[in-house]
Structures are given as C-alpha cells and as structure tokens.
Design a protein around this nucleic acid. Structure first.
Length: 417
RNA sequence: GUGGGUGUAGCUCAGUUGGUAGAGCACCUGGUUGUGGCCCAGGUGGCCGUGGGUUCAAGUCCCAUCACUCACCCCA
C-alpha cells in the first residue's frame, strides 16, 4: 500500500487523554463536586469563548497573560474573541449578567474545565489545561476567605494529597498598598540598580511587588531586607488578615506566611494564597487564589466583593499517579463463531441486569480467548462454545478466585442475577 | 520569545573507528481433544522524524527542517 498523506497530529500543548488518564480527571471532578457541595457551592458552567475585552479588563492589560499568552482571534464579523485563559473573569461576567446579585446576598459557585494559554509547554504546563475553580460573591468577611482555603484543603486531602504547602499573604487594599508600593520603590532606590537582573530593573517601576518574587539569586539577596507588605497594612486589612489566620489556626490547618507571595493577575487584594509542591517539576503552584473585591465593579457590575481560587488539574494529576480502572464483571468468550449474534444478545441481557463486560469478536482459539479474558481483568469469563450453544447453557469460569467453574442454564443464570 | 536535550519495531531503548538494523516488554501461533495468569518454542512487525549534502557506502558525519521534551519567563 502506498504511504498515506502525512498524519495529522494534535497541536502543540494540547493533549489526548485515554481512559487511564481521563479517569484521573473524572475522579478529581467527582471529589470536587462532592466536597464543594458540603460547603454550599453550586456548579456554574460558562462558555470557553468570551469577548477579548472581558479578560483585558479583569485580568489586567499589563499582565503577561493578557499581553502575550491569550488565544485571541477575530470571528467572522471581525469581533475579537479569546479562549478563556482562566475562569474567574467568565464566572464574574455570568454572575453580573444574571442580575442575581442583591446586597447582603452571598453566591457561591464552582466550575471546572479547560483553559487556554499560549505558552511554551513544559512539565505541568499545557496550552490547554484544566482548572477547578471556586468563587464566592457578596462576602467581604475574612470568614469567606477562611472557608475557601479550608474547602480547598479538604478537597486536596480527600484526594489523598496531604503533604502540600499552603502559603498565605495579604496584599493590602487600595488604601494601604500605594504606601507600601512607595516604600518598596524607595528601598530599591537605596540599592545599586545595576545589581538587579534585567527583568527586575524594569519591574521595579512597573510592578515593584513582582521583584519580591524574582528567583534570580542576586535579586533574592537584594530583596531579603526589603519592607514587607504585612508591616504596611491599614487597620482594616490587618484585622481581616488576622481573622483569616485565626480560622486556619483554629481548624488546625498548617500554612506558611509568605510576605513575598504575589499573584500574577491584577485584580487581587487582601488575602492571597498558594498551594505548592516540589514534586512536580519546576512549576510548583498547584492552586492559588485570593480576594478580588474590585473586580465585579470593574466589569460594570454592582459593588460586590469576591474571593476565590483556581486549582490546576494537570498538576494534581502529576501528584496523584495513575488511576485504577474498575474491573468488569464478565468477559464473554465466544468460541463458536456461528454464535456471534446469540452471544451479543446474551451480553445485552447481562448489561440490562447492570453487569459490565465485553464480548469477544471474530474467531479465536480457546486459549486466546482465555488470555483475553485474563487481560480484561474480568471477574468471570463466560464461555459460549459449541456445546453451550447446542443446549442453551453458558459456562462460568471464575477468574482469580477459588471456585469451580460451572455450566448453567442461560435463562436460569440471568434470573439469578 | 530564549536556551539545553532527544527523535531507531506498538512501548522503553541498544547500535561499536561510516559497511543497507537488535534487545526487553507488548502482540500473534503453538507446547495434542474447548480453559487464563508462570514457563518454554516459534512468529508478525522498522523509508532508523523529514529533506538535502559528503562518501564506493550514512542509523552512524555535515546542513536545514519538523516534532517531542526539560528549563527560563510566567502561571494553576
């Protein structure tokens, strides 16, 4: 045969998940659903595609995500659309658009699904990746932040992940952050600018908080004695932060205070946190979130506070290892090929009884059938050969258990299930 | 966008100073009548990523290109 056309391959940074891997995601979603329901969160599904403007306004024009990482393209009428790079913007948009908000009312939503960012793929990072998200609207209280972090922790624990680090910080608000920002700039000016890395020399003017997060050793050293945000919080922010910590302390949830913790999206204020692991490559963030009290209003909605988190499923999958697929109840070995139709109909009856299993196809020896049954992991191999076809029976061979195989009347066997 | 690494059988990988390819696993068939796992024997399967170049001869050397991968950046 002639060589076919070039194989079409998937695009960079997009992955196919076959059953074993897909099962991990299904499990994460199931545990998330069950856990979040305990906290009164309802599922919200929003579109994968939104107007570009939504992300520009919410995430921030100057962020890397908006500046160079979005899948943006014009539609047929030349309107700029973008595949969502994160979930919060869309959820906030939906919340505002629904008009559901009333003063004093708290709304809690979770969502999960694919997000898209045009970055170079590496371990723990795909261009299409998946997040589990939770958002709380209408609750300015520290208790909402505390509940959210405890919920995230519970979710991770229930997945079996108990060795993750929770880092916590407060970013202050529009009252106290400017003062801190200035203090930072003053501090940088007291140092020799040339000793900072190239990125930081730029960042110290545009986004001085980011410099704190730099991984370049020289910068880390220079920044060691920089003023910390938590010393510059206003009274309200200080009290708010203390409450969040008190809740975590009271619940026995371990965390580390990290005054250098900064989020990459512009909308965060006050509470900010990150869950990390060092076992998944250089990308250590498993989940992250915080408070975004100004976001709803920025998007044209009411003056409504918000707080939430996002959790990266690819990174969880790296920690969780392979999922176990459920074992089927039967493997129907058809040894007499002329009974193929009869066998398929019998299998249908078994499935109507709620059993799981598959039927062999085509021709094959008894030995090959048994090997296939073994590989399928089925609890029982049901044999339909010449003699069974002749007298309406089926031979049941129990795999991996001490029990004699038996040949039974097919109708009677079905009735016994 | 910038670096490094890797592309040989379905999978994981060997392949010696250049002489047109091998292992393990997987798969298939057997080891007497219709019975799996372990073991044994045999077998199917490779344009050595792609395109050029050097050479009598290229999986091996050179160039280009594509893909994958790790890292930077940034983030979940």
């Amino acid at each position: 045969m002639e060589r076919a056309m070039t194989k079409i391959q998937k695009i960079k940074g997009f992955a196919d998940l076959f059953p074993e891997e897909a099962a991990q995601y299904t499990r994460m979603e199931a545990v998330a659903r069950d856990t979040f329901a305990r906290y009164g969160f309802g599922e919200l599904r929003t579109p994968l595609l939104e107007k570009t403007e939504l992300f520009a306004k919410s995430i921030g024009e100057d962020t890397d995500v908006v500046g160079k990482e979005m899948f943006t393209f014009p539609d047929r009428k030349d309107r700029s659309l973008t595949l969502r790079p994160e979930a919060t913007a869309g959820v906030a948009r939906a919340f505002i658009e629904s008009g559901a908000h009333q003063p004093g009312k708290v709304s809690k939503y979770f969502t999960f699904g694919p997000m898209f960012r045009y970055e170079r793929p590496q371990k723990g990072r795909q261009r299409q990746f998946h997040q589990i998200n939770a958002e709380v609207f209408g609750a300015p209280e520290a208790q909402a932040d505390g509940e959210l972090i405890l919920m995230l922790r519970t979710f991770l624990n229930r997945l079996g992940l108990t060795k993750l680090t929770i880092e916590l910080n407060s970013l202050g608000c529009h009252e106290c952050r400017p003062g801190y920002r200035q203090a930072l700039i003053d501090y940088y000016r007291s140092k020799d600018r040339r000793n900072f890395c190239e990125d930081c020399r730029r960042r110290m003017d545009t986004n001085p908080l980011r410099v704190l997060d730099c991984k370049v050793p020289a910068c880390k050293e220079l920044v060691k004695d920089a003023p910390v945000i938590t010393d510059h919080l206003c009274d309200d922010c200080r009290a708010h932060f203390a409450d969040v910590r008190a809740i975590l302390d009271g619940a026995g949830a371990a965390y580390e205070l990290n005054p250098r913790l900064v989020r990459g999206l512009d909308y965060y204020v006050r509470t900010c946190f990150e869950v990390s692991s060092h076992d998944i490559g250089s990308q250590t963030a498993v989940a992250g979130g915080g408070r975004y009290d100004g976001l709803i209003r920025n998007l044209g909605g009411p003056d409504c506070p918000g707080t939430g988190f996002a959790c990266g499923m690819e990174r969880l999958a790296l920690l969780l290892g392979p999922a176990e697929l459920p074992r089927p109840d039967f493997y129907l070995a058809v040894v007499d090929e002329s009974a193929a139709n009869e066998a398929m109909l019998f299998a249908q009856q078994l499935r109507d009884k709620g059993l799981t299993g598959e039927v062999s196809f085509g021709a094959g020896s008894m030995k090959s059938r048994m090997r296939a049954a073994n590989k399928s992991g089925a609890k029982a191999c049901l044999i339909l050969g010449g003699s069974e076809v002749a007298d309406g029976t089926v031979t049941v061979k129990y795999m991996a258990v001490e029990r004699e195989q038996e040949t039974l009347d097919r109708e009677g066997y079905l009735a016994s299930l």
